[in-house]
């Protein structure tokens, strides 16, 4: 069950894997996610967006960034290993229609969940402008796939090592000012990026969707840990989202909640890395 069929790095800390999950592969739609755990007994449950799927092979494509213990465990697994479990697909699928001109903005690892949505928007007949951002050239992922999908691709890096130097909101503002104003904007990335994308589009009155990746336990509406404030009302990202009208989301609150376990997570990660180092030493001293 849940066998890793293939796995490869996309950048220093970002990995891609195809995982056997036939039911999910069959049911999934753009914008949905799965709950994944590397270990059935002790593992943490984390949400990951389904980037793609192959119904015939019964596999789904997942992309994740190594940020803590659980994602490190995933990063260390290889083809042939099995995940503890994969549950899904979860969340409401993206509402896709022919808007006209759609701008897809992705930052960092957010470029991964943006891919299936961009694909769906393109298939629905939209003119797609993709804006991808990364800190530096090595961290940019999925550029080729976006290049093929989109009518126009703008790449920015914080340090200017590739594409334009700057952040995604700059080209986004330019696109909004064009004579042919965009009809729809989809922004996925770090919370702070999504917040500023929404601030960028707000004066233009362009509908802007964001996909939120909050802390979750079950992913089915049972715990409420993922709750966010949207338009002054409490919404659960797992069942009411993960996509919301970005102009209504209280990002400041969300960012605080995202940091809820920062210290604990840091400790767990440190302990894990030290443990791994020790194992490494043992091995090298015992040929």
């Amino acid at each position: 069950m849940y066998k890793i069929v293939s796995k490869k790095p996309l950048s220093a800390n970002v990995f891609e894997m195809d995982v056997c999950a036939p039911y999910v592969a069959r049911a999934r739609k753009a914008g949905q996610f799965v709950i994944v755990s590397p270990d059935e007994e002790r593992g943490e449950r984390i949400p990951l967006t389904i980037v793609d799927g192959d119904e015939q092979k019964g596999t789904i494509r997942l992309i994740f960034q190594r940020v803590g213990k659980t994602t490190s465990q995933l990063a260390e697994m290889s083809a042939g290993d099995c995940l503890g479990y994969v549950a899904g697909p979860l969340g409401k699928p993206t509402h896709v229609e022919r808007f006209g001109v759609a701008v897809c903005v992705g930052g960092g690892i957010g470029v991964a969940p943006l891919l299936p949505i961009t694909k769906a928007l393109k298939e629905a007949g939209n003119t797609v402008i993709a804006i991808l951002g990364a800190r530096t050239k090595e961290l940019l992922i999925l550029e080729e796939e976006f290049r093929q999908l989109s009518d126009e691709l703008i790449v920015v890096t914080d340090d200017g090592s590739y594409g334009r130097k700057g952040v995604v909101t700059e080209p986004l503002a330019e696109v909004c000012r064009r004579e042919r104003k965009p009809d729809f904007v989809m922004a996925i990335g770090p919370a702070i990026m999504m917040k500023f994308c929404c601030e960028t589009t707000r004066p233009f009155g362009i509908r802007t969707q964001v996909s939120l990746n909050t802390i979750m336990v079950d992913g089915t509406g049972m715990c409420g840990g993922c709750r966010v404030e949207v338009g002054g009302k409490t919404q659960f990202v797992c069942v009411d989202g993960p996509e919301f009208d970005g102009h209504q989301v209280n990002f400041d609150l969300m960012m605080k909640r995202l940091a809820a376990y920062k210290d604990l997570e840091q400790k767990a990660y440190e302990a894990y890395r030290q443990h791994r180092c020790r194992i490494g030493l043992d091995r090298s001293s015992n040929p």
């Binding site: 089915t220 049972m222 409420g224 840990g225 966010v228 409490t234 069942v239 209280n250 909640r257």
Partner: peptide, 21 residues
């Protein structure tokens, strides 16, 4: 299984849990 909240100010603060969670 869908937890109810009180709808009072501060329910989104870090450290507020539903009993379910």
């Amino acid at each position: 299984g869908l937890p109810k909240f009180l709808g009072i100010e501060g329910e989104h603060l870090v450290g507020v849990y539903s009993a379910n969670e």
